[in-house]
């Protein structure tokens, strides 16, 4: 049996629903090149055995990923990643953007910024460049 390529971890206090956390973790692993086309996602049972979540939640996350065209369920075999989301800009420790960010974080730390300062700055600047979607009502 193939062993799972990635392991999910659920942050119980984040307020983000479990299935969204699973979707985000798969997407993130794909962006970072940890998951590529052909990799099999852990089965619902494997996830449930590792972390106490509802298998329906895992399947719901996988269906969402399938709708987004990122994975494909193959009957009796499992759910497989169909494409790669990583690019040279995001993959590997020496990707240029990553290097720049690492440099910036290093300088922030030297100036004595704590992680909350860094998060606040990051989110403020990020929202300027990527305006958040309107709250649905």
């Amino acid at each position: 049996m193939l062993t799972g390529v990635i392991e999910f971890r659920i942050d119980r206090r984040s307020g983000v629903s479990t299935y969204v956390q699973i979707v985000q973790q798969v997407e993130q692993a794909m962006r970072l090149g940890l998951l590529t086309a052909g990799d099999r996602l852990p089965s619902a049972r494997e996830v449930v055995e590792a972390i106490a979540v509802n298998p329906n939640t895992v399947l719901k996350a996988y269906r969402e990923l399938e709708r987004a065209g990122l994975v494909e369920a193959r009957r009796g075999l499992g759910t497989f990643v169909t494409r790669s989301l990583s690019s040279e800009a995001t993959t590997g420790g020496d990707a240029p953007l990553r290097r720049e960010l690492a440099g910036w974080l290093g300088r922030a730390r030297e100036r004595g910024l704590v992680v909350e300062d860094v998060d606040a700055l990051y989110f403020a600047v990020r929202d300027e460049h990527y305006p958040p979607p309107e709250e649905r009502s």
Partner: peptide, 12 residues
């Protein structure tokens, strides 16, 4: 955690 895993495995 273990009891929940047993029950969730049954569901799966």
């Amino acid at each position: 955690d273990e009891v929940l895993r047993i029950v969730m495995t049954e569901v799966a």
